[in-house]
Computed example of a mutant assay.
Amino acid sequence: MKKLIITAILALVPAGAGALELLLQENRGESGTIGYVDIDRVFKDYSGTAGAREDFLSEIKKKEDALNARKTAIFTLKAEMAKLRQEREFALTLPSLLETQRSVEQAAADARAAAAALAAAAVSTQPVTGSTSAPAGAELTLSTAAPAALPEALPGMGGIDMPGVAKVPVTHFKFSVSTSVPEIDAALQKKEAEVVTREAELRQAQRQAERELLEYESRKGELLLGRIYVALRELAIKEEVSVVVDKRNILYGQNAVDLTGKLLKKLEENGL
Score class of each variant (00 low, 15 high):
109 A>N: 03
110 D>T: 04
110 D>G: 05
111 A>F: 03
111 A>C: 09
111 A>T: 11
112 R>D: 09
113 A>Q: 09
113 A>H: 00
113 A>L: 06
114 A>Q: 14
116 A>G: 02
117 A>V: 05
117 A>Q: 14
117 A>K: 15
118 L>C: 06
119 A>L: 07
119 A>F: 02
119 A>Y: 03
120 A>Q: 13
122 A>F: 09
124 S>W: 00
124 S>F: 04
124 S>H: 07
124 S>P: 02
127 P>D: 07
130 G>M: 10
130 G>N: 15
131 S>C: 10
131 S>Q: 13
132 T>A: 14
133 S>T: 13
136 A>S: 14
136 A>F: 10
137 G>N: 12
137 G>I: 05
138 A>D: 09
139 E>Y: 11
140 L>G: 08
140 L>V: 15
141 T>E: 12
142 L>Y: 08
142 L>N: 11
142 L>E: 09
143 S>Q: 13
143 S>E: 13
145 A>P: 03
146 A>V: 11
148 A>P: 14
148 A>E: 15
149 A>T: 09
151 P>M: 05
151 P>N: 06
153 A>E: 13
154 L>D: 04
154 L>A: 14
155 P>A: 05
156 G>W: 01
157 M>N: 02
157 M>L: 14
158 G>E: 12
158 G>V: 04
159 G>I: 00
161 D>P: 01
162 M>V: 10
163 P>M: 00
163 P>H: 02
167 K>W: 01
168 V>H: 07
168 V>G: 07
172 H>Y: 06
172 H>M: 12
172 H>N: 14
173 F>M: 11
173 F>D: 02
173 F>N: 02
173 F>P: 03
174 K>F: 01
174 K>D: 01
174 K>E: 08
175 F>T: 03
175 F>E: 02
175 F>S: 01
177 V>M: 09
178 S>G: 07
178 S>Y: 06
179 T>P: 01
179 T>G: 05
179 T>V: 07
179 T>N: 08
181 V>T: 15
182 P>Y: 06
182 P>K: 09
183 E>W: 03
185 D>S: 07
185 D>Y: 04
188 L>N: 02
188 L>C: 06
189 Q>P: 00
191 K>D: 04
191 K>S: 05
191 K>T: 04
192 E>R: 13
193 A>F: 03
193 A>R: 11
195 V>H: 09
195 V>E: 07
195 V>T: 09
196 V>P: 03
196 V>F: 08
197 T>C: 00
198 R>E: 08
200 A>G: 11
200 A>K: 14
202 L>V: 00
202 L>M: 06
202 L>C: 02
203 R>P: 01
203 R>F: 07
203 R>M: 10
204 Q>T: 13
206 Q>P: 02
207 R>L: 11
